[in-house]
Design a protein around this nucleic acid. Structure first.
Length: 294
DNA sequence: AACTCCCCCTGGATGC
DNA sequence: TGCATCCAGGGGGAGT
């Protein structure tokens, strides 16, 4: 399930391989993939042919392909969210049951690129502009701080929530309006590393606690980007060439429910927050006050 | 207004 | 073995 580090890995691979090339084909194969259809991709699509990929950007979990226009200043953005199971691949994977989950087929200067998405949670739409932070304009109000682009603003964003909300810190980390890019994997890892229980109310964190969590967000995200993301058994994330990332070997709590905590040996517990299970260690993770026990 | 919950979907894991 | 059921998760919208 691609979160910020996986999308960033895909972004940099795409940038290396495709920037400067011209779009020769844009074929949408899944109706659900363009369900928002913000700027009627089916109609506008043909107008994009011949344009050059001038940049590959990312904000949160959104991948933003910048297509320069034929007229000066004319730019369009093909925005892609990979959802749960979306992958960009150079070669289509083989399915044992023979099903084809290709949702988009693009070709840049004779090089094919496919969006492969079995669970169809992914989506593609066209955008005419980005805001001052680099967010697709129509998503401006829905996305908070990207911790990879703006590491120094994470503590501020969390602090702002803390003064007006008593939501569980885990729910806050998952909320894209606060921090854009974290999903279940990285938010669990962040909370273990900052030694805060997932159900701890954000309002009960003091300044140091907030800073601890913010530092862990930046640390975990940066390390995961270096290691090219996390690939799980379900293979829902593989890079452009079909290779796995390696941050999964750094996971200390995610996917380790009922296994022994790597730090204290206690069984990893889990709790349902905002409809998702959080794995955590009830000994190592309590309030922020416990953070310097190591 | 702020927040939670349900739904969309499929493949893999688990249960009987 | 094979079938049925469960589970995972992001985001949007309905509901509280």
């Amino acid at each position: 399930m691609p979160e910020l580090p996986e999308v960033e890995t895909i972004r940099s691979d795409l940038a290396l391989r495709f920037i400067g090339l011209r779009l020769e084909m844009l074929k949408i194969l899944g109706e659900r993939t363009i369900r928002r259809n913000k700027t009627n991709l089916e109609e506008v699509g043909p107008e994009l042919l011949g344009r050059q990929l001038s940049d590959a950007k990312r904000y949160g979990k959104y991948l933003i392909l910048e297509l320069s226009g034929s007229q000066i200043g004319e730019i369009s953005y093909l925005v892609v969210h990979l959802g749960m199971s979306g992958r960009f691949v150079l070669q289509l994977p083989e399915m044992p049951n023979g099903r084809d989950h290709t949702k988009m087929h693009v070709r840049f200067s004779e090089e094919d690129l496919y969006l492969w998405d079995p669970r169809t949670f992914g989506e593609v739409f066209l955008e005419t502009g980005l805001d001052d932070l680099g967010r697709p304009m129509t998503l401006s109000k829905r996305l908070g701080i990207d911790p990879y682009l703006y590491p120094h603003n994470v503590a501020g964003a969390l602090g702002e929530v803390a003064v007006r909300s008593s939501r569980a810190i885990k729910a806050v980390l998952l909320d894209q309006k606060v921090i854009a890019g974290l999903g279940n994997i990285y938010s669990d890892e962040v909370l273990f590393r900052s030694r805060v229980s997932p159900s701890f109310p954000v309002s009960a964190l003091d300044k140091r606690g907030i800073e601890r969590v913010a530092e862990a967000v930046v640390e975990v995200v940066n390390k995961a980007v270096v290691l090219r993301g996390s690939s799980l058994k379900d293979k829902s994330y593989m890079d452009l060439s079909g290779r796995p990332g390696s941050y999964q070997s750094e996971h200390l709590v995610y996917g380790r429910y009922s296994k022994a905590c790597m730090v204290c040996g206690e069984d990893i517990d889990r709790v349902l927050i905002a409809g998702r299970y959080s794995s955590f260690c009830s000994i190592c993770q309590q309030g922020a006050d416990r953070w310097d026990y190591s």
